[in-house]
């Protein structure tokens, strides 16, 4: 594993999303790679974004807009007291990164809705990264483990 990827995964394992950036042209490099796909420049990790109680660098939050979304079908019954459904959304972040994230919301989101990255991490089964977004200033759903 390259040093950049190794460092990225250490950070995301702590809930911190550090944007991989090209040292030459400044473009976001996503998924993280050793070299920039635009100019083949080197890559460094920028400041980290956290959220939802995750320790980040200051109060910055990574903001983006929903490109498209669909609803997850619950495997079992929803948690008691939960009024939210779970959606998976393709999100375009303002830093240039696009990824699929989970969103818990009381009503279906729509393309163009503004969201922020609220948490990130490594999947417990080792299958890759996990991302969650929320609408800015959304109240927490105490019945949703994602917000605990």
């Amino acid at each position: 594993m390259s040093p950049v990827l190794s460092e990225f995964e250490r950070a995301i394992g702590r809930g911190l999303f550090r944007v991989p950036e090209c040292t030459e042209c400044g473009a976001a490099v996503w998924p993280p790679s050793e070299f920039c796909s635009a100019c083949l420049g080197g890559v460094r990790l920028g400041l980290g974004y956290g959220g939802g109680g995750v320790s980040g660098d200051g109060d910055k939050r990574l903001q983006g807009r929903i490109v498209e979304c669909s609803m997850e079908m619950p495997a079992g019954r929803p948690a008691a007291g939960s009024v939210r459904s779970s959606f998976f959304c393709l999100v375009a972040f303002e830093c240039g990164i696009r990824l699929i994230a989970r969103l818990a919301a009381p009503v279906p989101p729509a393309p163009g809705d503004v969201v922020v990255l609220s948490s990130c991490g490594m999947s417990p089964d080792g299958a890759g990264y996990v991302f969650e977004v929320s609408t800015p200033d959304a109240p927490e759903d105490p019945a949703n483990p994602a917000n605990m």
């Binding site: 998924p31 669909s70 990824l99 699929i100 999947s123 299958a127 890759g128």
Partner: peptide
């Protein structure tokens, strides 16, 4: 395609198919 970390935990093809269908 496990390489595609931009899909996050939604790597199974049913997820991209759902987003294309929705779109």
């Amino acid at each position: 395609l496990w390489w595609d970390d931009s899909r996050g935990e939604f790597k199974h093809p049913v997820y991209w198919a759902s987003l294309l269908t929705s779109g």
